[in-house]
């Protein structure tokens, strides 16, 4: 619950003392307000709020409620005095889930359910065609709300969100988009788009690839299957047949070996690393010429960069994992 909320409701309760015999929480007022404060951070913890890197919006400033002036209240309320007034005072939190362990989560969940009820009749697309969204993980959500949310409950909420995301994109209400924004990760898949490759005036397409500590650049032109790596022929540069096949694998797997010539430059690392860096470079250059080959190249394993590297040595170990030999005494 927002820190200000309790103090505000306290103040409001005291103000309403004069008007009402018994103060009650006014649902019609509170609900919309809570909804518009959804994006603010709420903490019930007395410890300092964690400004986690995952929470990008700043919590609102804490403002304590002004002290209750009983004399004034007495004068307004008339007979009874301060004691009488205190007896009638009952502080009601803004959210009905304030006394549950996870008020923010409960509020979120209920509001999403209400939203889904509202838009349930809108046409949907199958989940595979819905726009790809990276939802916050449960850990990120826990840090954001600072509440011990259970995994199962969180998954139920994500389920609702997925259903909301399946609404036909052309009919997607603005309200739903706003609500989903809270649960999305900061960066979404497809946010970073690489610059499209170009074929220059000489008909060359460039591709860059890396593997282990090797890096490679390949220029692909239309031709009849000639390959030069660092100015040498394939056989002079790579002694192993396997490495030679790795270099031209992207072309071989797509039956384009006799249609292109390759100029490659490679540096760093070892022989196999250089060959496999060239695989990626040639594949990327081929994609510039023929973008439609991407699925075929992905099936051939030429798109994904192999992220494996040499594991670092650790203190106390002989190598990355190896422990020193056990010695008696």
């Amino acid at each position: 619950m927002v820190r200000g909320e309790l103090s505000q409701s306290l103040r409001r309760a005291i103000e309403s003392l004069g008007n009402l015999p018994r103060p009650q929480c006014d649902r019609t007022i509170r609900y919309p307000r809570r909804r518009c404060q959804l994006s603010t951070i709420r903490c019930i913890s007395t410890s300092a709020p964690r400004h986690a890197e995952l929470v990008n919006d700043t919590p609102e400033k804490f403002t304590a409620a002004p002290p209750i002036n009983f004399e004034q209240q007495d004068a307004k309320g008339g007979k009874g005095g301060g004691k009488q007034l205190l007896r009638t005072l009952r502080v009601v939190p803004a959210s009905p889930s304030y006394f549950s362990a996870k008020p923010t989560f409960t509020d979120d969940f209920i509001s999403l359910q209400a939203l889904l009820r509202k838009v349930a009749t809108l046409p949907v697309v199958p989940p595979s065609e819905a726009p790809k969204v990276a939802w916050k993980t449960i850990d990120q959500y826990r840090i954001m709300t600072n509440e011990p949310v259970k995994t199962q409950r969180f998954h139920k909420m994500i389920h609702i969100l997925r259903r909301l995301n399946c609404i036909h994109p052309s009919l997607m209400p603005e309200e739903v988009l706003q609500a989903m924004q809270r649960y999305k990760k900061a960066s979404q898949p497809g946010d970073i788009k690489p610059k499209p490759g170009i074929i220059d005036e000489l008909g060359r397409a460039k591709g860059v690839g890396r593997r282990k500590t090797s890096s490679a650049v390949a220029w692909l032109v239309e031709g009849e299957g000639e390959v030069l790596i660092n100015g040498k022929s394939l056989t002079q540069f790579f002694g192993r047949l396997h490495d030679r096949e790795s270099v031209v694998w992207a072309l071989k797997a797509t039956q384009r070996l006799d249609k292109y010539n390759v100029w490659g430059l490679t540096a760093g690392g070892g022989v196999t690393g250089q060959a496999e860096a060239l695989t990626l470079a040639v594949a990327k250059a081929l994609l510039v010429h023929e973008p439609a080959l991407k699925p075929a190249l992905r099936r051939a394993g030429c798109i994904t960069r192999d992220p494996r590297k040499v594991e670092r040595k650790k203190p106390g170990h002989v190598k990355a994992r190896k422990m020193p030999t056990w010695v008696k005494r």
């Binding site: 299957g225 096949e245 071989k252 039956q255 006799d258």
Partner: peptide, 12 residues
């Protein structure tokens, strides 16, 4: 295609 492939792998 077979000849071309081997020709390329054999360093032109």
């Amino acid at each position: 295609p077979f000849v071309t492939e081997k020709w390329s792998l054999a360093g032109m």
